[in-house]
Computed example of a mutant assay.
Amino acid sequence: MKRPEQIVIIGFGPVAASLIEGLLPSVTAGDCELTVISAEKHLAYNRVLLAELAIGAAELEHLLMVDAARLDAAGVNVLLGAQATGVDRARRRVLVRDHEPVSYDRLVFATGARAMIPSLNGLNFDPHADTALPDGVFALRTVDDAQKLQHSLSIGGRILILGGGILGIEAALAIAASGGKPVLVHHGAAP
């Protein structure tokens, strides 16, 4: 009998959720075994709706893009809150902080992108490093960021949003709808 192919996905955002959905029939059939390594403590969710979460117009369960029970029933191994720290290509395994290494036949990087933080006085840092921002300054990319926005809204006052992309506009509209005072700043002539 042929050994099932070991597939490991690092990251668990929308792209990984879509890939997992496509692989589920093969996992269920026993053709492959799937492990998902996610630094976040939540299943994949729709990031576009984070502002709705922050203002209380949506619950996290409504943002989820996968069904935990379905993944579990198929036998998908999901490591939440687990940070991949390296890849041992010679041994074909992923090193994971506070976990045993995870072996793979195929490895998929679905880590998404970092939020682009502009270089401004007081915010100058290496754009390729995870540097802590000052209190009250944050990107809107994760559930934790949505909680920070929720806290800022509870304090009141203006909220400055840098960037007129889809998330910036969604955040400004949601903040205004909740009675907040958003100020949207965009570097181009129009969002």
Rank of each mutant, 00 (worst) to 15 (best):
K2S: 14
E5K: 14
E5M: 13
I7T: 09
F12P: 00
G13K: 00
V15H: 06
A16T: 02
I20Q: 00
E21H: 12
L23R: 03
L23D: 09
P25M: 07
V27D: 00
T28R: 15
T28G: 06
T28W: 06
L34D: 01
L34K: 02
V36D: 03
A39T: 14
E40D: 11
L43R: 04
L49I: 06
L49Y: 13
L53Q: 05
A54H: 04
A54G: 06
G56L: 13
G56F: 14
A58H: 09
E59G: 10
M65N: 03
V66F: 03
D67Q: 15
L71E: 04
L71Y: 03
N77Y: 04
L79V: 10
L79K: 08
G86R: 09
G86F: 11
D88K: 06
R89N: 09
A90M: 05
R92V: 13
H99F: 15
P101F: 08
S103H: 15
L107V: 08
L107D: 02
V108G: 02
V108F: 09
T111G: 03
R114F: 14
I117T: 11
S119C: 11
L120F: 13
L120I: 14
F125M: 10
F125C: 09
D126M: 07
A129Q: 11
T131V: 14
A132T: 10
L133I: 10
V137G: 03
V137N: 03
F138I: 03
A139G: 08
D145F: 07
A146D: 01
A146Q: 00
Q150L: 03
S154K: 11
I155L: 11
G156I: 14
L162A: 07
G163A: 05
G163W: 02
G163K: 02
G164K: 01
I166V: 15
I169N: 01
E170V: 04
A171C: 11
A172N: 00
L173V: 11
A174H: 04
I175V: 14
A176W: 02
A177R: 13
A177F: 05
G180A: 05
V183H: 08
L184I: 02
V185C: 07
G188A: 12
